[in-house]
Design a binder for these strands. Structure first.
Length: 660
RNA sequence: GCCGAUGUAGCUCAGGGGUAGAGCGUUUCCUUGGUAAGGAAAAGGUCCUGGGUUCAAAUCCCAGCAUCGGCUCCA
């Protein structure tokens, strides 16, 4: 019998019969690893443990076959586990609902919300009540310790098998993706078979900690014109402890939901009777917004922007000239007519800023022109997409448009990225995802601008990001049709990514509006235009901010900065005087005169996440001092009111993120 | 817009074919206290809206609206 040399990666070697499986070979090399392994990498390729070595390509020159276990607690291990659990889910559904047509069922590793899903079309619509039943069946199947069995068959054979089982979606996948031979996976003694590359765990009893999470619709191939399938989401871990910890963390995260905190802290509301997706900023939310805007205005002026204000509606022809009506008309509110003239609400501010640019002839000496505005826009978002402050129909963009010469644009973009980084730092965002979105090769997007334009712009954007030491992901096909852009996104409490600001290069509007400046040569030239937003939508930024701080804002943003808490009503007057003095220097102070014990007043202030409390009793009046309690540090002892004011004002002025 | 779920007091939620429930909050009274809940009483409801079934609907059925989780979209 022929023998082959095998070697554990970075480990011992051995000689084994060529007929053994990968798992058996691994056992010879490392008994412990073989026990734990979910799959293995053989010469760098992930395969099942049950694959015979003879079926895998031998190395030339007698070099040993390299085997590496795919272990739990690794990304690859988790992927195998979750992917196998998705198969188990499909097996359970097929068992319970014969005739179900399978779509796709991948593992999800980078989505903090879910671990896997399977898309399918069941003979009847599934409901939430089916999930526990399906989950139970999954457990039953898992306990039967059934094997995941791989087979390699010809494409024609695979098509025949899946056609026979009336799996049209699988047939389409095989047609689209399959080579001459394809691999299929069975779960033995179950009705399940899938067109799949693998690898998978050897058998179902490796799946011990999984949970189905939710049911939703999903379009086949992600295309809204295709039939809608049902998607079941779930997650899986190696141990029940890991699963429990994850579920618990998820619950914690839900407590940080900005919609919940918005209500509890009285920051904002959305009122059904006034309209979906329209935000009411309550006094406490509004004062935070004011701080955000003040900060930004300060920076705009410091960075030599010009502030502008523009209208909320404009003649329809403007949106036709700008191209918004043609390209985004579906998301614009319908026109409204006045004395034979049609107007439309603005979905963007750019045409207005262009109007200001065009209001006079521009010389190269006037450039760059940087127009900044908190511009409120309205977009007809589909009802199903609305989400708290994150996705709304009316919002305010901290919008700016830069008009410059080609020679200036590199510097302008660099300054924009610098600005972005500064803003994110000021608000304490550390985990930010930057994306460089560039042209793709889709045919449905009618890209403007030459290849050379795109290449030049992309290079400039990439270089600027590198210069600022910003890690980014390059995404093809995500660029706007009119130019490449830098987007940045942050996560909400449960890990959904939301886009905040953007820096976009525009090849389109300067052409459409025939923008010009007179250059040194005395002739008219076309300026370059950049769109730039930092918060993006102030509403969305606020929503993300609420979740980021779980409502416990830094002092400078806190709606109430100081809660003045008299212990007895003998000191109410002193408390009022202290609050008045705080307000006189610009600190936001509230006095709690309720007939409650000090513990209750402190509790109220803590729950409202007020940064500082001043506890005032007879002793403080006597000494003319205040007893300071900080939100997280607790009792800080007494000091004079003057000392407290200086401390608080210093924290506010520096926009400190913590009070230590 | 599409698929699924949900809609009961200001908030969080229980209940359920025949007087509408709790906790928190609110108001009033008592209490004047030293670093996360003092006591008592009261007020507070179109049980989302509209239709249907029924002697009787908040409860069952249908439709609509809104919200939630996704999908699609996202300048």
């Amino acid at each position: 019998m022929s023998e082959v040399n095998v070697q554990l990666k970075d480990g011992p070697a051995a000689q084994v019969p060529a007929s053994v499986t990968v798992g058996e070979a691994l056992k010879q090399l490392d008994r412990d690893a073989a026990k734990q392994a979910l799959a293995a990498r053989v010469n760098g390729h992930e395969v099942d443990l049950a694959r015979p070595l003879s079926a895998l390509e031998a190395n030339g020159g007698g070099a040993p076959i390299e085997i590496e276990p795919v272990l739990p607690a690794t990304r690859e291990g988790l992927e195998v586990l979750r992917h196998s659990t998705a198969h188990l889910l499909a097996a359970a559904v097929l068992d319970l609902f014969p005739g179900t047509k399978l779509g796709i069922g991948p593992a999800l590793l980078d989505d903090p919300r879910y671990g896997f899903f399977y898309d399918m079309i069941a003979p009847r619509m599934l409901t939430d009540e089916d999930l526990p039943v399906i989950e139970k069946r999954m457990r039953d199947i898992a306990k039967r310790n059934l094997s995941y069995r791989r087979e390699e068959i010809s494409k024609a054979e695979a098509l025949r098998i899946f056609a026979e089982r009336d799996e049209p979606l699988k047939c389409q996948l095989i047609e689209d993706k399959g080579g001459a031979t394809v691999s299929v996976y069975y779960i033995d003694n179950s009705p399940f078979i899938d067109f799949c590359l693998g690898p998978h765990v050897p058998n179902t009893n490796r799946l011990k900690a999984f949970k189905l999470l939710s049911l939703s619709g999903a379009y086949w191939m992600g295309d809204a014109t295709q039939p809608q399938m049902q998607r079941i989401y779930g997650t899986a871990f190696f141990t029940p402890e890991e699963l429990d910890a994850w579920l618990k963390q998820r619950q914690e995260a839900e407590r940080r939901d900005h919609r919940r905190l918005g209500r509890e802290l009285d920051l904002f509301s959305i009122q059904e009777q006034y309209g979906q997706g329209l935000i009411f900023w309550h006094p406490k939310g509004a004062i935070i917004r004011k701080q955000m805007e003040d900060y930004l205005y300060e920076e705009l002026i410091r960075r030599n922007y010009s502030l502008v204000y523009t209208p909320h509606i404009a003649r329809r022809e403007l949106w036709q000239l700008s191209g918004h009506e043609q390209n985004y008309g579906d998301s614009m509110f319908a026109p409204t007519k006045l004395e034979e003239t049609e107007f439309r609400l603005k979905p963007m501010n750019c045409p207005f800023h262009i109007g200001i640019y065009k209001s006079q002839q521009r010389s190269y000496r006037d450039l760059p022109q940087r127009y900044g505005e908190m511009g409120t826009v309205y977009r007809a978002e589909l009802s199903g997409t609305l989400h708290g402050l994150m996705r709304v129909r009316g919002f305010t963009v901290d919008d700016a448009h830069l008009f410059c010469t080609p020679a200036q644009i590199r510097k302008e973009i660099s300054d924009c990225v610098d600005f972005v980084v500064e803003v994110l730092k000021t608000f304490g965002f550390e985990k930010v995802k930057f994306e460089l979105s560039v042209k793709g090769n889709e045919t449905n997007k009618n890209y403007l601008g030459s290849e050379a334009d795109w290449a030049k712009a992309e290079t400039a954007l990439a270089e600027v990001l590198n210069e600022h030491g910003v890690a980014y992901e390059r995404i093809e096909g995500e660029g706007a049709f009119y130019g490449p852009k830098i987007d940045f996104k942050v996560e909400d409490a449960i890990g959904r990514l939301w886009q905040l600001g953007t820096v976009q290069w525009d090849f389109n509007l300067p052409e459409r509006f025939e923008l010009e400046y007179i250059a040194e040569d005395g002739r008219a030239h076309r300026p370059v235009m950049v769109h730039r937003a930092l918060f993006g939508s102030i509403e969305r930024f606020f929503g993300v901010l609420i979740e980021h701080y779980a409502g416990a804002f830094p002092l400078w943003l806190s709606p109430v900065q100081v809660a003045v808490l008299p212990i007895t009503d003998r000191v109410n007057e002193y408390a009022e005087r202290v609050a008045a003095e705080l307000r006189a220097v610009g600190l936001r102070a509230d006095v709690n005169l309720r007939s409650e014990k000090i513990g209750a007043k402190i509790r109220d202030a803590q729950l409202q996440k007020i940064p500082f409390m001043l506890v005032l009793g007879d002793r403080e009046v006597e000494e003319d001092k205040v007893a300071v309690r900080e939100r997280t540090q607790g009792d800080m002892g007494t000091m004079t009111l003057e000392e407290f004011k200086q401390m608080a004002l210093a924290l506010v002025r520096s926009r400190a993120l913590t009070n230590t």
